[in-house]
């Protein structure tokens, strides 16, 4: 099987948006789900959240940051190239219902997965307050798209180069303190941000949901590599999640498990970059 890359764009330094021709997935996809791709026969299976999809045209968008060997290799592909495998939609769809006011918090590449959620919550009749952030203004993703999809948009950057100087969680606290009646907070991003965000929102009478990005192989419940402790019980991110009640997630274990191959990943990147310098790729 081969899946055609229809478009590719670098939307921020080392962050890319790719649009793949995958009509079966586009037709079935819902906000909050993910796909797994494999670049070629020797590649890893890489899970990525669906950043956007169009049922009519059969297009599925993914957004990824160059981190490990696979994402660096993926970044080298262009429109017209093919991916060996592209499977999905995986995971349970986000639990989107009419709740009233929903705050969506996205940090870094975590803005990508909340974009389809913002659209879905809005069309379900909610007031959507989005808070997006990044280290600096250049790394801020999807500002225009998020502005259009949300009822209100707030921005935070670590260096203050755009929006509020500080973290998305600072803005979250301010809104929760303002007395506005909020039904749910959805936080997606680096695990440390989800942990801090959960800590900030926990004292308030509000539902908190996080979407996890565990290491996994198949994404269908077969490997169990994505197991995570939720409320003292082992759950599989791929079939029980990826959304969980944030107050019950063991974030420390999640972060530890995400570090499982950190050493090997660094070595793989080094080897790959050396090969690139030698003109092998």
């Amino acid at each position: 099987m081969a899946y055609k890359i229809l478009e590719k764009e670098e939307i921020a330094p080392s962050v890319h948006r790719m649009i793949i021709d995958a009509p079966d997935i586009a037709k079935a996809a819902k906000a909050g789900q993910f796909i797994i791709l494999r670049i070629d026969e020797r590649g890893e299976r890489v899970p990525l959240t669906i950043a956007d999809f169009e049922k009519e045209t059969g297009k599925v968008a993914i957004i990824f940051q160059e981190m490990g060997k696979s994402t660096k290799q993926l970044a080298k592909l262009s429109a017209g190239d093919f991916l060996e495998d592209f499977v999905g939609p995986l995971g349970n769809p986000a639990d989107v219902r009419k709740l009233g006011t929903v705050i969506l918090v996205g940090g870094g590449v975590g803005v990508a997965p909340i974009y389809p959620q913002a659209k879905a919550y809005r069309s379900a009749g909610n007031k959507v307050i989005s808070i997006i952030g990044a280290r600096n203004k250049d790394l801020l993703l999807l500002e225009e798209e998020m502005r259009e999809a949300s009822s209100e948009l707030y921005i935070a950057t670590d260096d203050g180069s755009k929006g509020q100087h500080g973290f998305v969680t600072d803005i979250l606290k301010k809104i929760l303190d303002s007395g506005e009646k909020v039904a749910r907070v959805v936080i997606v991003g680096p695990p440390i941000m989800m942990k801090v965000g959960t800590g900030v929102a926990s004292p308030y009478d509000v539902e908190i949901i996080v979407s996890l990005n565990s290491i996994m192989v198949d994404g269908t419940g077969m490997c169990g590599g994505c197991r995570v402790m939720v409320d003292g019980e082992t759950k599989f991110t791929c079939i029980d999640g990826p959304e969980f009640d944030a107050r019950k997630v063991d974030f420390v274990q999640l972060m530890n498990r995400l570090a499982m191959y950190r050493g090997e990943e660094a070595k793989a990147v080094e080897k790959y970059e050396e090969e690139c310098r030698c003109g092998l790729h």
Binding site: M1, I25, K27, D85, F86, V87, G88, P89, L90
Partner: peptide, 9 residues
């Protein structure tokens, strides 16, 4: 391949 019954259909 890459076709999950219960997800795609």
């Amino acid at each position: 391949p890459n076709y999950i019954i219960g997800r795609i259909k």
